[in-house]
Nucleic acid binder design. Structure first.
Lengths: 133, 133
DNA sequence: AGTGGATATTACGTTAACGTCAACGTAAGC
DNA sequence: GCTTACGTTGACGTTAACGTAATATCCACT
């Protein structure tokens, strides 16, 4: 059981960036704006698997067209921390708003997929018509 | 049957913008970059229902996080126009790539919705626990 | 004739999300 | 001791997608 290939618990900046498909500049930028806060060994950044998870969430947000600020808010939703009742309520509101946006997106994607299917069919049709004669 | 409230075939810029939730500046910007090309009555822009449809497609793209250039490409897919075989083939490729992106988005949305559900449940839980004692 | 409202053009300003140097430190290997 | 690779901190540049005046025109009222 020893020496089993376990997932590493620490990452250098280049490793993290390579596996995530971003540049180091981007990772540092995310740190500048407080989206990531890796620990340091001397000057050098050391990323934990928690940092890696945060980054993954950020990138998922980007794929959905969210701004970094949006992603920050959503990620913050995951750890309410402050157990103030008002905050919790407004948090629930925010969650429901996000859900509405996502449902709208689901709808949009469905329609766009339909459109694409039609376009593709038309293309293939045109190709066949051209090919025969 | 006369005088039935038919959808208007022409729109002023303010009407179009109001119903679409954008500013006139935005509409003019889309024209600047060639995304819209309304006809003119003198100097004044006149938008057809085709223009309106294009705008709707652009806005749908925005909701999905697409850039205006992306939207332009997708919209152009709808009217192949040039029936060159190579173009059709690369168009089909583009369509398939788009479809992959959309499927990824579907996946992301599903996961994000799950996360949000959990967060909301945790919030409600926290509220109840605080409320009781 | 004057006023108000919608339209137009021109042009500079702004924000987000990085890109792109420059200049430097440090540890590894030959 | 020199190169190579990876790391650091500035700091200015860039692109997209508009915002924000400033100024001018045209048409309908009063």
């Amino acid at each position: 059981m020893r020496n089993r290939a376990t997932a590493p618990a620490e990452f250098s900046i280049t490793d993290l960036c390579k596996e995530s498909g971003i540049t180091t500049r981007t990772a540092r930028h995310y740190e500048d704006i407080g989206l990531l806060s890796p620990s340091r060994r001397g000057q050098t950044r050391v990323y934990s698997s928690a940092d890696r998870t945060r980054l993954r969430l950020i990138l998922r947000g980007k794929r959905l067209g969210l701004s970094l600020e949006d992603s920050r808010q959503i990620i913050d939703m995951y750890e309410p921390g402050k157990t103030n009742v008002d905050q919790l309520n407004s948090l629930i509101d925010a969650i429901r708003q996000q859900r509405e946006k996502l449902n709208q997106q689901l709808d949009d994607i469905g329609n766009l997929l339909k459109d694409l299917n039609q376009s593709e069919a038309a293309c293939i049709d045109a190709l066949n018509t051209t090919g025969d004669s």
